[in-house]
């Protein structure tokens, strides 16, 4: 890939960047633990405003800190593919939502970017995707941290070979989807009372009719829908990247270095020295 025609920035910003990543991850984890373990008061009295605020600020703030820490480490080749991932997420997710499907299909772009450009680019794409989608569909906004987690895990799965064989992709999708469902459920419950599409609410209604609490019912629905959704999304992305010409895949240092598509990734590049981010071009 072509190298920048300007001098590379120094390493003075390395420590604050790592600090942002650690703080963002810690904030998201603390928010999740608070919502699931400390907060769960009986929903019958109404969803407490503290839980809603913690959910909004914890997940959005954590996502913003992660993006702030990730953006400086991304190369231009990763940056130019992120808007396309965001646009794909929004365009396909909007169609799936309007059809009232039981799955969302709103992470195809995130997983695609994660597979080609790495976990860091995938996480930033997921978070920014929901932030931008929030301008057209405000219900997407609080799920930004969950989307970042999907991008991060998809990239890590790709790095460890989940996209080298087509039959490995749905297995990775199942695991990533289950984790994503667990994280998204408290947001859906404490922000919107678990309101979703007719398809997803029908699943929650089944669990509620069995006497489950709203958070438990939403978590079970999340585990079902998100796992199925990510299985489909991972398979679609695997089939798309297999159909890409090698020239298109080779422009991404991450895909080249870690041979994320096996023999389809092209020539092996030298191993990078550190980090989960996209290696320097």
């Amino acid at each position: 890939m072509s190298s920048p025609l300007t001098l590379a920035p120094g390493h003075s910003s390395e420590r604050p960047r790592r600090m942002l990543l650690v703080l963002g991850g810690a904030l998201i984890l603390a928010t999740y633990l608070f919502l699931v373990t400390v907060q769960p008061t009986e929903i019958a009295g109404g969803v407490g405003s503290t839980a809603s605020l913690v959910s909004l600020f914890g997940f959005l703030g954590g996502g913003a800190l992660l993006v702030g820490g990730i953006l400086p480490m991304l190369t231009t080749s990763s940056l130019v593919v992120m808007p396309l991932g965001i646009a794909l997420n929004i365009a396909i997710g909007q169609i799936a939502g309007s059809l009232g499907m039981q799955i969302y299909l709103d992470a195809i772009g995130t997983v695609l970017v994660a597979v080609l450009a790495g976990p860091a680019a995938g996480a930033a794409t997921g978070a920014l995707s929901n932030a931008i989608w929030g301008l057209f569909n405000p219900f997407a906004l609080p799920f930004a941290a969950g989307a970042a987690l999907i991008g991060l895990l998809a990239g890590l799965a790709a790095k460890h070979g989940a996209f080298r064989r087509v039959y490995l992709a749905p297995v990775a999708g199942l695991v990533v989807g289950a984790i994503g469902g667990l994280v998204a459920a408290p947001v859906a419950v404490f922000m919107f009372g678990a309101a979703g599409t007719f398809g997803t609410n029908a699943i929650i209604a089944v669990f509620r009719s069995m006497g489950d609490k709203l958070l438990v019912a939403a978590t079970k629905q999340g585990l079902l829908s998100d796992s199925l959704d990510k299985i489909v999304v991972f398979v679609i992305v695997a089939l798309i990247v297999y159909a890409l010409p090698q020239r298109a895949v080779r422009q991404f240092p991450f895909a080249r270095t870690y041979r994320v598509l096996g023999n389809r990734s092209g020539r092996r590049a030298p191993q990078p020295t550190s980090g989960i981010g996209t290696p320097a071009a």
Partner: peptide
């Protein structure tokens, strides 16, 4: 869908 969910299925 929220009205249908909570209006019809609210065990509490």
């Amino acid at each position: 869908s929220s009205l249908l969910l909570h209006g019809l299925f609210y065990p509490e």
